Amino acid sequence: MTFFKKSGQFYGFKTCGHADSAPNGEDIVCAAVSILTQTMYFHALNQGVPESEIADEQHHGFLSIRIKNDHDIERLQPAFHFLEDGLKLLKENYSEYISLEDQEVS
Score class of each variant (00 low, 15 high):
Met1Arg: 02
Met1Asp: 01
His71Glu: 13
Gly61Thr: 08
Gly48Met: 06
Glu101Asp: 06
Tyr97Asn: 14
Arg75Phe: 15
Glu96Arg: 11
Phe82Lys: 04
Phe10Gly: 04
Ala19Phe: 04
Tyr11Met: 09
Ser64Asp: 15
Met1Lys: 00
Pro50Phe: 08
Asp56Lys: 07
Gly25Pro: 00
Asn24Arg: 10
Gln58Glu: 13
Lys88Met: 06
Leu89Glu: 12
Gln38Glu: 09
Ser64Tyr: 05
Phe82Met: 09
Gln47Tyr: 08
Thr2Phe: 02
Ser99Lys: 13
Phe42Glu: 08
Phe10Arg: 07
Leu89His: 08
Glu92Asp: 13
Gly12Val: 06
Val29Lys: 04
Gly12Ser: 05
Gln103Ala: 11
His18Cys: 08
Ile98Ala: 00
Gly25Thr: 07
Tyr11Asp: 03
Leu90Ile: 05
Phe3Thr: 03
Asp70Leu: 08
His43Arg: 13
Ser95Thr: 08
Tyr94Ala: 02
Leu63Tyr: 06
Asp70Pro: 12
Thr2Ser: 11
Ala32Gly: 03
Lys6His: 08
Thr2Asn: 10
Asp56Arg: 03
Phe13Tyr: 15
Ala79Asp: 10
Phe10Asn: 02
Val29Ser: 01
Ile67Asn: 00
Ile65Phe: 10
Ala44Val: 09
Glu51Cys: 11
Leu87Ile: 08
Arg75Asp: 03
Val29Pro: 00
Ser95Cys: 02
Ala22Met: 07
Val29Asp: 05
Gln9Asn: 13
Leu100Ile: 15
Ile35Asp: 01
Glu101Ser: 11
Arg75His: 07
Lys6Gln: 13
Ile28Tyr: 08
Leu76Met: 13
Leu100Lys: 05
Ser106Lys: 14
Val105Asn: 11
Asp56Leu: 14
Thr15Ser: 15
Thr39Met: 11
Asn24Leu: 07
Lys88Arg: 10
His71Pro: 00
Tyr94Thr: 00
Phe10Lys: 07
Pro23Glu: 09
Tyr11Asn: 13
Ser34Met: 00
Phe4Thr: 05
Phe80Ala: 02
Glu104Trp: 03
Leu83Glu: 01
Asn24Val: 07
Lys6Arg: 15
Thr2Lys: 15
Gln103Lys: 14
Gly12Met: 07
Gly8Arg: 12
His43Cys: 09
Gly17Asn: 11
Phe62Asn: 03
Arg66Thr: 13
Lys5Gln: 14
Ser34Asp: 05
Lys88Tyr: 04
Gly12Phe: 04
Ala19Tyr: 09
Ala79Val: 10
Ile35Thr: 15
Gly25Gln: 05
Glu26His: 07
Lys88Leu: 11
Thr2Arg: 15
Ile35Gln: 12
Glu101Leu: 14
Glu57Met: 05
Glu74Met: 06
Thr37Asp: 05
Glu96Leu: 10
Asp85Lys: 14
Phe3Pro: 00
Met1Cys: 14
Thr39Phe: 09
Ser7His: 12
Gly8Ala: 10
Asp20Trp: 06
Cys16His: 07
Met40Pro: 01
Glu57Cys: 06
Lys68Asn: 12
Phe80Tyr: 12
Asp72Asn: 12
Ile65Arg: 01
Ser64Cys: 15
Glu51Ala: 15
Asp27Asn: 04
Arg66Ile: 07
Phe13Asn: 02
Ile67Thr: 04
Leu76Gly: 04
Leu45Asp: 02
Gly25Cys: 06
Phe42Thr: 11
Arg66Val: 12
Pro78Trp: 09
Asp72Val: 02
Ala19Met: 12
Ala55Lys: 15
Glu92Cys: 04
Asp70Met: 06
Ser95Asn: 13
Leu89Gly: 03
Tyr94Asp: 02
Val105His: 07
Ala31Glu: 04
Gly8Phe: 05
